[in-house]
């Protein structure tokens, strides 16, 4: 980014590429922030329900925990895709 803007500044004009880069840089943060909202709620709900289930039936705790981790993995993937998009467009 920095180097590119150096070059572009050296060129002295504001090209479409530069505009695009600026827009990307300013929106990269939003990409991750927005992507984290849904999975955050989802994981909270999921873990809360799992704890409830484990407390209600402690003998099934192992199975519930495995399923919980699977669910967390799937839910978290969405947030991580947001993170990857952040890296992709933020660079």
């Amino acid at each position: 980014m920095e180097a590119m803007s150096h070059l572009v500044n050296a060129a002295g004009t504001s090209t479409p590429t530069e505009l695009k880069a600026q827009a990307a840089a300013s929106s990269a943060g939003f990409a991750y922030g927005l992507a984290a909202i849904g999975p955050g709620i989802g994981i909270g709900y999921l873990v809360g329900k799992s704890v409830e289930a484990m407390a209600r039936q402690p003998e099934a705790a192992g199975m519930v925990r495995t399923t919980m981790f699977l669910g967390i993995a799937f839910t978290e993937a969405l947030a991580l895709i947001g993170f990857v998009v952040f890296i992709l467009i933020g660079l």
Partner: peptide, 30 residues
Amino acid sequence: PTTPPAQETSTSESETVHDANTTVNSDGVV
């Protein structure tokens, strides 16, 4: 300063952005 030099640099930039396999950001080499 009269000649608009944007052509060359912008092409090299677009390479940097799109063809990330083979190009590098030229960091601090100006």
